[in-house]
Simulated scan of single mutants.
Amino acid sequence: MREETTEKTIFNYTAFISIGGILLYQLGWSYWETYLNNLNINSSFIEISIEKIISTTWTTIILVFLALVRSIEDVIKLKPNQTISLTNVIIYLAFGIMLIYTANNLKDGYMIPTLILAVIVTIITFFEKRINKLATLNRRNYIITIMIVGYFISFFYYPYLAKKDSKKMISDYKNDIEIILNHDNKTIKGKFITFMNDKYFILIENHKCQIETLVINNSEVSNSKFSKTNK
């Protein structure tokens, strides 16, 4: 009996780690694909290591965990035969979502999310009896709800973050790389984006003073150097 329980526990942990790894990869890929696409780099060019993709997701996963920590505490305290009111679940999850929004929009202040949360809490409190008559959640369903909400928060957050970072990349344009081509010694200056698939991807300013993305094959490059100097 003990051996069966141990095997079941090991299987559950293995499944959890596998699912977690797949989720981290999916979210990381979502970020990089959106980020590079917004810099006019086609998805067919994207070739990023698994380690880099997964490492991108850790900060947000921690943020989501902190935002939902109140809900997680309830899950731990909740016994298998107990239930929790739907109003409490909605309030905790709404608070978590507002916390994530505020953490990523500090420049906009915290008044708007605070007011939205106050309105949500007021509405839910007013209709508390009616809402609780609709449903209550047991421990299993509560865990599933938290997982689904956490996933969707992360799923929608990453494209948003990628768009925000790519816009900042363009707005903060400064030459930081100099590439010398081997066939005519032509020098190209621009802002380095990434090196992947044996290609340099850089931002350059064209003759119309517009920022565009340039792709240079490594085979064409004689020399390249980075600098911190402004254009």
Rank of each mutant, 00 (worst) to 15 (best):
Lys186Asp: 00
Ser55Cys: 04
Ile131Asp: 01
Glu33Met: 09
Ile17Phe: 14
Ile62Lys: 12
Tyr31Gly: 00
Thr136Gly: 07
Glu7Lys: 12
Thr194His: 11
Asp108Asn: 15
Ile53Tyr: 04
Trp58Pro: 06
Thr83Leu: 03
Leu68Thr: 06
Ile112Pro: 06
Phe226Arg: 11
Lys77Gly: 08
Leu93Thr: 08
Phe16Tyr: 15
Ile153His: 05
Thr34Phe: 14
Gln210Thr: 00
Val64Cys: 02
Ile72Ser: 03
Phe195Asn: 02
Thr87Gln: 10
Asn38Asp: 08
Leu39Gln: 00
Tyr142Thr: 04
Thr187Val: 10
Val149Thr: 15
Asn88Tyr: 07
Asn37Arg: 04
Asn37Cys: 01
Gln210Arg: 00
Val121Ile: 15
Ile131Ser: 01
Phe16Asn: 13
Val89Glu: 03
Thr57Arg: 07
Leu66Glu: 04
Gly190Lys: 08
Leu106Thr: 11
Asn40Lys: 05
Gln210Leu: 00
Thr102Met: 08
Lys186Ile: 01
Met196Leu: 14
Lys164Glu: 15
Arg140Gly: 03
Ile204Ala: 01
Thr114Gly: 09
Val149Pro: 13
Ile48Asp: 00
Lys189Gln: 10
Lys133Gly: 06
Thr83Asn: 05
Leu39Phe: 07
Tyr158Val: 14
Phe65Glu: 10
Gln82His: 13
Lys189Val: 06
Leu78Trp: 10
Phe226Thr: 15
Tyr200Leu: 12
Asn37Tyr: 02
Thr145Cys: 07
Leu86Ser: 09
Phe95Leu: 07
Lys189Arg: 10
